[in-house]
Each structure stands twice: as C-alpha cells, then as structure tokens.
C-alpha cells in the first residue's frame, strides 16, 4: 500500500468521505437558510432544531410505529415541514415588517423550547438508529460503506435538484422575483404570502431530510442541531447568501477541508471553519459568492 505524507490512505480517504458527508449536511442546511432568508428576511435559528426533529421523527417512527428508514426519509420532512408551517403562520409572520434581528431572536427562542422539550423527553444521551444499508465495498484504496456512499450521492442530487428548481423553472423564477421585489410580484397576481409559507416549509423540510440522513451516522441527540447550526452560520458567512450554487459548493468544500484537517492536524478540526471564516471576512467581507447588503 502506498502512503501519502505518512498518512495511511485508509485514514485519509475515510476522513475525506466523512468530510464529504458533513459537507453534504452543511450544504443542505445553508441552502435552506439562504432560501428562507431571501424571501422571509429571517435567519432561521430553529433550522438546527428542525434538523434534530427530523432525526427524532425518523427514530420515533422506527422505534414505535415500525416505519423504516426509506419511508421516514419522506414522512419525516413532511411532518417537520407541517410544524414549520404552523410556526410561520402563528409567529414568524408577525415579524416580517420589523428588523431582521427580531426574527433571529424569535427563532432562537424556539431553539430553546424545542431543545429543552426533547432533552426533557429523551435526555442528553444519544439514541442509536439502525443502519439501513449495512456492509460496503472495498475499493482497493479504501473501504466504502454503502450507507455513507448513499448519503453523499443522495444529498448531491437533492442539492442539484434544488438548484435546478430555483434557477431553471418557472416556480423558481417566481421565487427569485419574490426575493427581489415582493410587492411587484404580488401586483402580478401571485400569492406571495402563500409562497413565503411554502418556502419556509421547503427549507425546513430540507433540514429534516438532512436530519433523517444523519440519524444512522451520528446518534439521534437533542443537541445535535444546535452545534451544527453554528457551523452552518459560519458556512453562510463564508459563502454569502447570494447564490444557490455558491451555498452548495461552499458547504461541500468546507466539509472536505474539515475532514482533511482531521487527518493532518486534528486539534484544529473543530475550529478550522471558523478560522476560514475569519480569513474570508478579512479578505472579502461580503463572502465568496455574496454581495454586501
């Protein structure tokens, strides 16, 4: 077997794969955040909690209702999206005319509520979720577990499909126009408030989908979302929220960089994304793909 800079290839490619998977979650969550922010002018702090709820719905379904992973992959995002619609209709809607900061504070309040309730119900320790695709294939230079391969491929497809819908379809054109000038879009006879609600539901559903995919890899845990969302915020700052493709590229790229850091300098792996954020802010304050607003 060959060695690269004294690192065995198994470890290198293993971490690279894990980095890609983390990157997939960063991409899916920052995508949802960007789409929601574009239309609602709200940074959805609850995004991490909704990711966590997605995982918990899947776990709950498997544990008590016998719903398997593949069904949960569809059911769980729908359930969480419905909860998102309720949240938007009852609370978020009232804040659109105010400073963006109030949206952040409100959704932060819901993070505390959801996390507190799940911690009360399930404790702080993780709940294991059975791997639906056991086994894997030996590629010669590394062992590829089927499930991890599936996560990378599926999340890539989801991200690209989202990009396609927003950038290339009529529905996406409405969405982009609504982001640019909601009043004018309304004047053309499009139901903007409903579009806003559905956009929020979509972004939240995406977060829940990522949560279901994360369940077999990490343990299902009430705090899994809040730790992730802060990293995703840094990802959003690095990429800027201007471009859909930018969010996808930044998410996957930073995941890979984080994975590589784990191989070469593990002490810095928890902070590397924040360090990159600092550098990007010093060099290009608007973010790699963003425009200052």
């Amino acid at each position: 077997m060959f060695e690269l800079l004294g690192i065995p290839p198994q470890a290198l490619f293993g971490q690279l794969l894990l980095g890609l998977i983390n990157g997939a979650f960063y991409a899916m969550l920052s995508l949802g955040l960007a789409v929601i922010f574009g239309l609602l002018n709200v940074i959805n702090f609850t995004h991490g909690a909704q990711y966590m709820m997605g995982a918990f719905v899947a776990w709950f379904g498997l544990q008590f209702l016998g719903i398997n992973y593949w069904v949960a992959l569809i059911v769980s995002p729908i359930v969480v999206a419905i909860s998102g619609v309720i949240l938007e209709q009852l609370f978020l809607k009232r804040l659109y005319h105010l400073d963006h900061l109030y949206g952040l504070l409100l959704t932060f309040g819901f993070v505390l509520i959801f996390e507190g309730m799940f911690r009360y119900g399930f404790g702080s320790s993780g709940q294991p979720y059975e791997n639906p695709l056991p086994g894997g294939v030996n590629l010669g230079f590394m062992f590829l577990p089927w499930y991890r391969g599936w996560v990378v491929v599926a999340s890539l497809i989801i991200c690209l499909a989202t990009w396609f819908i927003i950038e290339k379809t009529k529905l996406g054109a409405y969405l982009r126009a609504g982001t640019e000038n909601p009043t004018l879009v309304r004047a053309f006879g499009i139901n903007v408030p409903r579009m806003i609600t559905l956009t929020y539901a979509f972004g939240v559903g995406l977060a829940a989908f990522a949560g279901v995919m994360a369940a077999p890899i990490y343990q299902v845990n009430p705090t899994m979302g809040s730790n992730l969302i802060i990293v995703v915020f840094a990802v959003v700052v690095i990429g800027g929220m201007g471009s859909i493709m930018g969010s996808i590229v930044t998410g996957f790229g930073l995941g890979v960089i984080e994975g590589l850091t784990k191989v070469f300098y593990p002490q810095a792996s928890a902070t590397v994304i924040f360090v990159i954020m600092t550098i990007v802010l010093l060099v290009r304050p608007a973010g790699l793909f963003g425009t200052q607003r």
Binding site: F91, L95, L106, G109, V111, L112, I113, E115, G116, R119
Partner: peptide, 16 residues
Amino acid sequence: EWVLVIQGVVFVIIVL
C-alpha cells in the same frame, strides 16, 4: 430542562 423551555417561551412572548 424546563428552565430552557420557559426561557424560550419568554423570548417568544417578548419578541412578539
């Protein structure tokens, strides 16, 4: 854990 929940509720009420 209810402390967290109550703090969250206070957040929501005040912001709204």
